[in-house]
Design a protein around this nucleic acid. Structure first.
Length: 950
DNA sequence: GATGTCACG
DNA sequence: GACGTACGTGACATCC
C-alpha cells in the first residue's frame, strides 16, 4: 500500500435522486419515506469501510447542493427551469441526508450560488495539483470532464457505487467516443433536457460525438459548418451556434471556487460511534446497527466499536443536550428585514423560497383565536437575516385614516398559494397548526410542513420545569438555543387596556417583529432538526407527531355543534338551584358569606360552627375540599351536603353551561377547541379555549351537559374509546401474565384482580381492586392507597405486597424503569417518545418521589397517547379506502379526541359501515411498529348527542 | 398571579 | 425525624 493521499468526494445530491429511484420505497406505516436515506447511509458505510484498502479513501467529504439557484441562472435564466419538482416522498429526505452525514462525523460542503459539481471540480483540481489521487463518487456525466492525471501525478477518477464501477479515461472514451477533455464539447452540442441546457436542436449523443471526433473541438465543428454540404445538420449548426456556445459555458465546471474546508482537514479516521448509533437507532436501521453491536465493524478501522457509556451518569438532572453552543450564524439584525409592499418584491421572495426549498413561515393576525381572527400579514425567512414581512391588513378601522401601502390581500395570497402548497418546498413554522388554520380559511392548504415547537417537544419534553407552552414557546427556545432575545408581542402591541391589535402597529415596527419570528423559526429549525436524528427523536416526530399536525388542525377548524338553547335552559335551572341552596346554607350558618370562598367557608365550618377535623395547609387555611366535606356529611353535618351540592352546580354553570354558550363561534355556529400537541409532558394532547376534554360524564346531572353536544340534522355522533388501554399496556409492558390472560379472554379486569387479591369477587372487593389497579399505574405509596381505601398504612402495604406477589412483573417493571430513568434522565414509550425527569435524583425527597411516580406512569400514559395519535393519523386514509368520504359534508369527520376516545360526526346511514373501519384502525394502531401481547378493545356507539353515543 | 377546587382521562 | 402522600391536564372564583 502506498502512502499516497486519496481524496473521495461524494456527490450527495445526485446520489439520493438515483437511490430514490433504484431502491425499494422503504417507508414506515405512516408513509414517512427513508429509502433514499437508507441507501445513502449504506453507501457512506461502505466507503468508510474501504479506508485501509488499496485505492480506498484517506480523506473524504460530502458535497451537497445548497440551493437550486446558482451563478448559471444569472447567465441563463432558463437554466434547470424545466426541472420537475422532486417527488413528494423524497422532499422530507433532503434534510435527513445532512443528518446522516453528520452522524458519520464527515465534513459537509454546501456553498450558495454554486452547484455541488463546481465544488467537486474545485476540490478535485486542488487535490490533484498537490499530487493527490481523487475519486469522485458519482455517475454524473458532467463530472466526467474532470477525469485524468494532473502534471503533479494526481489522478482523478470516478466511482459509481451502485454499479460498483470505476470510471477512468477508458470508460469515458467508451461512453463519449472522446477523451475527458472533450466531454464538455460533446455535452454542449447534445444539450440536456433535464437541466434545460439547449445544445443544438436535433443533435443527440451520436451526432455530437461524431462532430467532435471529426473536427477536434466544438469551436472547430461550428466554424466548419459553412463549409459543410447542404443538410438539416448544417442549417441547425449555423442557426443555433449561439445556443451551443451558451451551452458550452453552462456545462463548464467552475474549478476555482473558494474552498471552505482545507482538504487536509478532510482526513478520514475512526468514525465516532455515538452519533452514528443514535442516528441508526433513530431511523430503525437495525441491520446496520447490528453490524456495530455484533462486535463487528463500525465503519473504518476501529479500535473501540461500542458506543461509550454516557458520562453524566447520576447527573441526569443537569442535562446538556439542550444547552449546545449556538450554531454559526450571524446575529439577528432586525434592520436587515424587508417590508414587502409591491407584487414585484413579493415575487422575488417567492422565487427565493422556491430556490431554497425550505422557508420559515409565520402569519400575523388580529386575534389569538385562529377561528375568529383576521389575517394581518405573512412573514417568510429563507436564511439567517433573510426575512421579510408582507403586510396585508394593516391600518386602523377609521375610514378617514390613510392606510399604508399594501399588496391587496387576494393578490398576495394568490401569489403565495403555489409556494405554500408546493411539495418541493418545506414550510417551517413555530406552532404551525395555527398558521395552517388561518391559511386554510383562505383556501390555502399548506404542505409539507415542519414545526420547531413539535421538534423541541420530541427532544426536550419535561426538561423545562415551567413556562408558557411547556418550555417550547418561541421566545424561550430562541433564548435557550440561540442566545437571542426576541421582541415580545407586548413590546409591540402594548398590554392591558392600551393594547392595540397587530394591524394597528406601524409597518416598520411590525416588520421587525414579524420577520424576526420567521427568521428565528428558520434558525431554530436549523439548530433543532439535526438533533432529532442524533438523539433518537426522529421516529416519534416523523411517525407520530408530525403527521398529526394537519389532522388536528382539521378537527379544530371543523368544531362541534352544541345546542345553545339547551345550555341556556340548564344555566337557568342551575342558577335558581344555586340561589336556593345559598339561602339554606346561610340559614344553617346563621350569617351570610361567600359560599364560593374556601377561606370564608373554612372559618364558618371549623371556627364558628365548631366542627372537628379542620386541617390547615401551609397557607394557614382550612381545607374544605370534597373529601373533607364528605367526611363532615357522613358525621351528620347538613351544611356540608348543601355546600357539596352548591359547589357541583356552581362548577357546572360557570365552567360549562355559561362558558360553552360563549364559546360558540358566531361565524360557524360551532364550538372550536384548540388542542396543544405539547401540552402534556407524557405526549398526550391537551385542550383549551374551551377545554373539551373535561366535559362532565360521571354524574347524572353532569351528563345533561353532554346531551347538548349534538350532531347536525341527518347526522349522528359516534364515540369510540379504548377500553382500559393503560392497564392493558401495563400488562404488556410489565409482562403480567394473569392480567394478559384476563384481557385475552375478555374478562372483567377488576373482577379478575379482586379474585387474585382477595380470593372472592363482590362489589366491595372489585371496587378495592379497581382502586389498586389505578394506584399501580400512578406509582403507588402505602399512604396514598391507605387514604383512598380508608384503611391504615400498614394494611395498605400488605395489599401492595399481595399485588406484587400475584403480579410479579409489576415490581420488576417499576424497578427497571426507575433504574433506567435515574441513569439516562428520561423515560421512553414503546414508540420511543422520551420524557425527561430532571429531578429524579433530587436530594429533596418529596421532589424525588414525585418524579419517580411520574416516571413510572409516563411510559404507560405516553404509549397510550402514541397509539391513539397513530390511529388519528391513519383514520382519514382508512375511511377513504372504505369510501366513507372523510372530511366531506356527506362523509365521516373526526371531531374530538379525549385521551382514549375519538368522537366523529357522520350521516346516519353511514354509521354501520363506519364502525368496523374506525374500530379496526384504532385496534391496530400500534402495529406494525409494536406488537402487543394484549388485544386493544374498543367500545363504540352512536347517537344524536355525545351522551347518547356512549 | 397564587391558591383552592373540581371537571375529565 | 420531618416531609406529604396517585399520574396527566385546564377553567373558574377568590383573594392578595
Amino acid at each position: 500500500m502506498s502512502d499516497k493521499q486519496h481524496l473521495y468526494l461524494v456527490d450527495g445530491s445526485a446520489y439520493i435522486f438515483r437511490a430514490y429511484h433504484r431502491l425499494p420505497p422503504l417507508t414506515n406505516p405512516e408513509g414517512t419515506p427513508v429509502g433514499a436515506v437508507y441507501g445513502y447511509t449504506t453507501m457512506l458505510w461502505k466507503l468508510a469501510e474501504d479506508l485501509d484498502k488499496a485505492d480506498g479513501p484517506t480523506h473524504l467529504a460530502v458535497v451537497l447542493d445548497k440551493s437550486s439557484q446558482s451563478f448559471r441562472n444569472e447567465i441563463y435564466d432558463q437554466y434547470k427551469a424545466n426541472r420537475p419538482d422532486p417527488p413528494e416522498d423524497l422532499v422530507p429526505q433532503f434534510p435527513l441526508i445532512r443528518d446522516a452525514t453528520r452522524a458519520f462525523s464527515l465534513p459537509l460542503i454546501e456553498e450558495p450560488d454554486v452547484e455541488a459539481d463546481d465544488m467537486i471540480a474545485s476540490y478535485a483540481r486542488a487535490a490533484a495539483s498537490q499530487g493527490w489521487d481523487v475519486t469522485i463518487v458519482s455517475s454524473d456525466k458532467d463530472l466526467m470532464q474532470l477525469i485524468g492525471t494532473s502534471e503533479q501525478g494526481g489522478t482523478i477518477d470516478m466511482l459509481d457505487t451502485m454499479k460498483s464501477a470505476r470510471i477512468g479515461p477508458a470508460e469515458v472514451e467508451e461512453k463519449f467516443g472522446v477523451g475527458p477533455e472533450l466531454v464538455g464539447d460533446v455535452l454542449a452540442l447534445m444539450g440536456d433536457s433535464v437541466d434545460n441546457i439547449p445544445g443544438i436542436f436535433g443533435v443527440g449523443p451520436k451526432t455530437a460525438t461524431k462532430l467532435i471526433q471529426d473536427h477536434g473541438s466544438l469551436t472547430a465543428a461550428l466554424d466548419a459548418a459553412p463549409e459543410m454540404k447542404k443538410s438539416k445538420l448544417k442549417e441547425r449548426l449555423l442557426e443555433h451556434r449561439a445556443d451551443a456556445e451558451l451551452s458550452r459555458i453552462l456545462v463548464t465546471l467552475k474549478e476555482d471556487c473558494e474552498l471552505p474546508i482545507a482538504i487536509e482537514d478532510m482526513k478520514l479516521g475512526k468514525i465516532p460511534p455515538e452519533p452514528l448509533v443514535a442516528f441508526l437507532t433513530g431511523h430503525g436501521f437495525t441491520s446496520l446497527l447490528r453490524r456495530i453491536d455484533n462486535g463487528g465493524s463500525a465503519p473504518g478501522p476501529t479500535t473501540q466499536l461500542h458506543p461509550a457509556k454516557p458520562q453524566n451518569k447520576g447527573e441526569a438532572h443537569a442535562p446538556k443536550g439542550n444547552r449546545q453552543p449556538p450554531p454559526e450564524m450571524p446575529e439577528v439584525d432586525r434592520k436587515a428585514y424587508e417590508c414587502v409592499q409591491t407584487v414585484d418584491r413579493l415575487e422575488a421572495w417567492i422565487d427565493r423560497a422556491f430556490a431554497a426549498r425550505l422557508v420559515a413561515v409565520d402569519t400575523e393576525t388580529s386575534d389569538l383565536d385562529c377561528m375568529l381572527c383576521d389575517l394581518v400579514g405573512v412573514s417568510l425567512a429563507t436564511g439567517p437575516n433573510e426575512a421579510c414581512y408582507i403586510p396585508l391588513g394593516h391600518g386602523s378601522d377609521d375610514m378617514f385614516a390613510e392606510k399604508p401601502t399594501q399588496i391587496p390581500l387576494d393578490v398576495a395570497l394568490a401569489k403565495l398559494k403555489p409556494l405554500l402548497e408546493s411539495d418541493a418546498v418545506l414550510k417551517v413554522g413555530q406552532n404551525i397548526k395555527y398558521d395552517l388554520n388561518v391559511l386554510a380559511r383562505h383556501d390555502i392548504h399548506v404542505a409539507p410542513i415542519d414545526d420547531t415547537m413539535i421538534v423541541s417537544f420530541a427532544l426536550d419534553a419535561g426538561r423545562s420545569q415551567d413556562g408558557i407552552g411547556g418550555g417550547h414557546g418561541m421566545d424561550e427556545l430562541a433564548q435557550r438555543h440561540l442566545g437571542h432575545t426576541c421582541l415580545t408581542f407586548k413590546e409591540v402591541c402594548g398590554t392591558g387596556k392600551k393594547a392595540i391589535s397587530f394591524g394597528e402597529v406601524p409597518l416598520d415596527r411590525a416588520t421587525e417583529y414579524a420577520a424576526e419570528d420567521a427568521d428565528v423559526t428558520w434558525r431554530l429549525h436549523a439548530h433543532l432538526k439535526p438533533r432529532l436524528a442524533i438523539e433518537g427523536g426522529t421516529r416519534v416526530y416523523e411517525r407520530v407527531d408530525r403527521p398529526l399536525i394537519p389532522v388536528v388542525a382539521d378537527m379544530e377548524r371543523h368544531g362541534i355543534h352544541v345546542d345553545r338553547a339547551r345550555l341556556a335552559g340548564l344555566s337557568e335551572r342551575f342558577a335558581s338551584e344555586i340561589t336556593r341552596l345559598e339561602g339554606e346554607i346561610h340559614e344553617i350558618a346563621g350569617q351570610e358569606f361567600a359560599v364560593g370562598s374556601p377561606k370564608q367557608l373554612g372559618e364558618i365550618l371549623f371556627d364558628k360552627m365548631g366542627y372537628k377535623g379542620g386541617k390547615k395547609g401551609k397557607s394557614g387555611q382550612y381545607s374544605t375540599d370534597q373529601s373533607v366535606l364528605e367526611k363532615l356529611d357522613a358525621s351528620g353535618a347538613p351544611i356540608a351536603t348543601k355546600v357539596l351540592e352548591w359547589r357541583q352546580l356552581a362548577k357546572l354553570k360557570s365552567t360549562y353551561t355559561d362558558a360553552l354558550q360563549q364559546a360558540i363561534n358566531p361565524r360557524t355556529n360551532r364550538v372550536h377547541t384548540s388542542y396543544s400537541l405539547v401540552g402534556a409532558q407524557t405526549g398526550r394532547l391537551s385542550s383549551t379555549d374551551p377545554n373539551l376534554q373535561n366535559i362532565p360524564i360521571r354524574t347524572e346531572i353532569g351528563r345533561e351537559i353532554r346531551q347538548a353536544f349534538v350532531a347536525e340534522p341527518g347526522n349522528v355522533l359516534l364515540a369510540a374509546d379504548y377500553s382500559q388501554i393503560e392497564l392493558r399496556l401495563a400488562a404488556h409492558m410489565a409482562d403480567v401474565d394473569p392480567l394478559r390472560d384476563a384481557f385475552a379472554a375478555g374478562e372483567d379486569i377488576h373482577a379478575r384482580t379482586a379474585m387474585e387479591m382477595f380470593g372472592e369477587v363482590d362489589r366491595d372487593t372489585r371496587g378495592r381492586a379497581k382502586t389498586i389497579n389505578f394506584a399501580i399505574l400512578y406509582g403507588i405509596s402505602r399512604w396514598g392507597l391507605a387514604g383512598r381505601l380508608g384503611i391504615e398504612a400498614d394494611e395498605a402495604q400488605a395489599l401492595i405486597d399481595t399485588y406484587f406477589a400475584r403480579f410479579p412483573g409489576i415490581q420488576r417493571y417499576i424497578v427497571s424503569t426507575l433504574e433506567s430513568v435515574r441513569e439516562r434522565g428520561y423515560s421512553e414509550t414503546l414508540f420511543g417518545r422520551k420524557t425527561w425527569f430532571p429531578r429524579i435524583n433530587s436530594k429533596n425527597q418529596a421532589e424525588r418521589q414525585g418524579s419517580e411516580r411520574a416516571a413510572i406512569n409516563a411510559p404507560i400514559q405516553g404509549t397510550s397517547a402514541d397509539i391513539i395519535k397513530r390511529a388519528m393519523a391513519r383514520m382519514a386514509p382508512a375511511l377513504e379506502q372504505a369510501d366513507l368520504k372523510p372530511g366531506q359534508p356527506d362523509g365521516v369527520r373526526m371531531l374530538l379526541q379525549v385521551h382514549d376516545e375519538l368522537v366523529f360526526e357522520l350521516p346516519e346511514d353511514l354509521a354501520e359501515r363506519a364502525k368496523p373501519v374506525i374500530e379496526r384502525t384504532m385496534a391496530e394502531a400500534a402495529q406494525p411498529a409494536v406488537s402487543l401481547s394484549v388485544p386493544l378493545g374498543i367500545d363504540i356507539g352512536t347517537g344524536r348527542s355525545w351522551d347518547d353515543a356512549h
